[in-house]
C-alpha cells in the first residue's frame, strides 16, 4: 500500500508538469488552431533561461522562474508575430511546417548558446520530507503545489476577467467573437504569451529532478500532444485530466510493469483511449 501511495504521489508530480505543458498547447490549438510543435522547444529554452540566470546572475530559484516566464512568454509572442501571424490565412499544413521550423531553429540555437552537454539545475529543495509515512523530495512537493496555484490563477483569469473570457469566446466561436468586438490580434498575442509562460514555469519546476539538454523538449511535447488528444483537442479540463492521468499511469507502469517501458505508456494509453472513445475525453470545445 505504501508503494502504491508513493508512486501515486510521484505520478501526480510528474503529471503536474505534463499538465502545465499540455495546457499551453491545448489553448493555442483551441483558440488559434495551430498545432504548435515548437511548444517543447519553448519548454527547453525556458529551462536554460532559468538555469542561466541562476548560475550567472545568482538569482534565487523563484525569481529566476519569473524571469524565465517573461522571457519565454515574449519568445512565444515573437514566434506568433513573426511566423504564425503572417501565415494566418495559409493551410494548416503550413502551420505545421512552420512549427517544426521554429522547433529546429530553437534547438540549434540552444546547442550554440549552451552546448549539447547534459546540465543539472541545483536548488536548495533537495531535502527529503516524510509525510503520512511517504518519502518525497521537497522539489516534488513544490511541483505539486505550484502547479495547482498556477492552474487556479489561470482558471480565475479565464473565468472572471473579461479579457480572459474573450479567449474562451474566441475558441468557442471565432466570428461570434469578432462580432462582439474582440480584437483577434490581442487574443492571439495573449494566448501565445500564456502558453509560453506555462511552458517556462513547467520547465523550471521539472528541471531540478531531470536533466537539461537541447533535446529535452521532444519527449515532453510528444506526451503533451498525446495528452491533448486524449483530453479532446482544445479542451482545458481535458488537458488537466489527461496530464495527471498520464503522469500516474507512467509512474505505476514503471513500478509494476517495468521502468524500461515508462515512455511507451503514453502511446499505449493513446491507442486504448482513442479506440474506446475516438473523440477524446472532453470532445468539442474549449470550456
Amino acid at each position: 500500500m505504501d508503494l502504491f501511495l508513493q508512486q501515486l504521489l510521484n505520478g501526480l508530480s510528474t503529471g503536474s508538469v505534463y499538465t502545465l505543458v499540455a495546457l499551453g498547447l491545448t489553448m493555442v490549438f483551441g483558440v488559434l488552431h495551430i498545432p504548435n510543435f515548437a511548444h517543447g522547444a519553448f519548454y527547453m529554452i525556458g529551462a536554460y533561461v532559468t538555469l542561466t540566470v541562476m548560475t550567472i546572475l545568482g538569482l534565487h530559484y523563484w525569481v529566476a522562474m519569473i524571469f524565465s516566464v517573461f522571457v519565454i512568454a515574449s519568445l512565444a509572442v515573437l514566434s506568433d508575430r513573426l511566423v504564425y501571424h503572417p501565415l494566418r490565412n495559409a493551410s494548416p499544413l503550413q502551420h505545421m511546417i512552420a512549427a517544426v521550423g521554429i522547433l529546429l531553429f530553437l534547438e540549434a540555437l540552444a546547442q550554440v548558446l549552451w552546448g549539447a552537454d547534459y546540465r543539472r539545475m541545483e536548488t536548495s529543495y533537495d531535502d527529503v520530507v516524510h509525510i503520512f509515512g511517504l518519502t518525497v523530495t521537497e522539489q516534488r512537493l513544490l511541483i505539486l503545489i505550484a502547479a495547482v496555484v498556477i492552474m487556479a490563477a489561470l482558471h480565475w483569469f479565464l473565468r472572471k476577467t473579461m479579457i480572459g473570457s474573450a479567449i474562451i469566446a474566441m475558441a468557442q466561436n471565432r466570428e461570434g467573437a469578432y462580432l462582439v468586438g474582440i480584437n483577434a490580434n490581442v487574443i492571439s498575442v495573449l494566448t501565445f504569451a500564456i502558453s509560453g509562460a506555462l511552458a517556462a514555469a513547467a520547465a523550471t519546476l521539472a528541471s531540478p529532478i531531470n536533466l537539461i539538454f537541447p533535446a529535452m523538449g521532444n519527449l515532453v511535447i510528444m506526451k503533451a500532444f498525446v495528452i491533448i488528444i486524449i483530453g479532446g483537442m482544445g479542451s482545458i479540463p481535458g488537458a488537466i485530466l489527461g496530464g495527471y492521468l498520464l503522469g500516474v499511469a507512467e509512474s505505476f507502469g514503471a513500478t509494476y510493469i517495468s521502468g524500461d517501458y515508462k515512455d511507451m505508456i503514453a502511446f499505449v494509453l493513446l491507442v486504448i483511449i482513442l479506440t474506446v472513445k475516438p473523440t477524446g475525453l472532453f470532445p468539442g470545445r474549449v470550456h
Binding site: 473579461m162 479579457i163 473570457s165 474573450a166 474562451i168 469566446a169 468557442q172 466561436n173 466570428e175 461570434g176 467573437a177 462580432l179 462582439v180 468586438g181 474582440i182 468539442g284 470545445r285 474549449v286 470550456h287
Partner: peptide, 20 residues
Amino acid sequence: KLFPGMTVFENLKMGGFVHR
C-alpha cells in the same frame, strides 16, 4: 454565432465586451 459553452448570462456579458 453564440458561444455555446457559455451561459446565457456570460454570452450577454461578452456582448458588452467593448464597454467592459
